[in-house]
Amino acid sequence: MSKVLIVAEHADGKANPSTAKCVACAAGIPEAEIHVVVLSDNSEAVANEIATLSSVSKVIRVDRPDNENQLAAVLAPQVAAMAEGYTHIFGPSTTFGRDLMPRIAALLGVNQVSDIMEVLGSHSFKRPVYAGNAIATVEAPTGLVVVATVRAASYRAVSSDAGAPVESVDTAADIPDHSRFIELQAGSSDRPDLQTAATVVSGGRALGSAENFDLIYKLADALGAGVGASRAAVDAGYVPNELQVGQTGKIIAPELYIAIGISGAIQHLTGIKDAGTIVAINKDGEAPIFEVADIGLVGDLFAIVPELQEAVS
């Protein structure tokens, strides 16, 4: 029997959707009992929300003021202190999980399985390597706890129609004071979140300026879509970093992805492999993006995008 502990990601009193996807991944482990831990300064709302997720048999609350800013150096020793008895400890492969989980793994003396995309058995998984150009089947050592991150884009959230018990615990861990949160500079936007939106419209270097990127925002608004970008567009300062899609940005799996003025470098394609339908708009018919696009339209985006926006409004 396996016993899985999932570290919940949350913000502003809500669970991040990646948590329910981690549960879906853990549910693929044979005969798994799944617990979720919420570390917070006030975890009540998040814990109650997570308690409704199917397959979860217990939610554990760890409340202390130090947890307010979710610093890995603060959270890791608390999770490590409660690891005993668990065969697996999972977190999402978002920046939150990628920061935290390896620190937990090292405290427990094990390597981490990064980015699980498929569970083959309790210690056997598939994960992407080389920017997704290869899929590796890996085996974690048996007899040691498996610490892993879950590639959220590979999973659908479990349903939320259950009711697991919620329990509060204190962890006896030494909390360091060498790391301090100063501030979060987050762009506020009413658009659907890039990581969960059903439709995403992305723009690349071809947009040419922050002003021109408005074309992308307008089309996205007409479609009720989230907005993404290539690294080149972020580097050029057209949009903030949190919009970057790809190997070093966000890995997403919308039902519809529209790539506009993006060439389709492998590092970008890694981020959209699991999209349902990919549409590419590019003036170069030879651009690599057309190798993966389900529907391609060759032409000048400055003519096409306003016309498309008109047509879907």
Partner: peptide, 28 residues
Amino acid sequence: AAAIREVRFEPPSEREKGVIVDDVASLV
């Protein structure tokens, strides 16, 4: 440390070949 053993590699699954449309109306 005990490594995570890589036992096998495979290429990623390929997407089916797409279509090229001529204009916005056909895209819609």
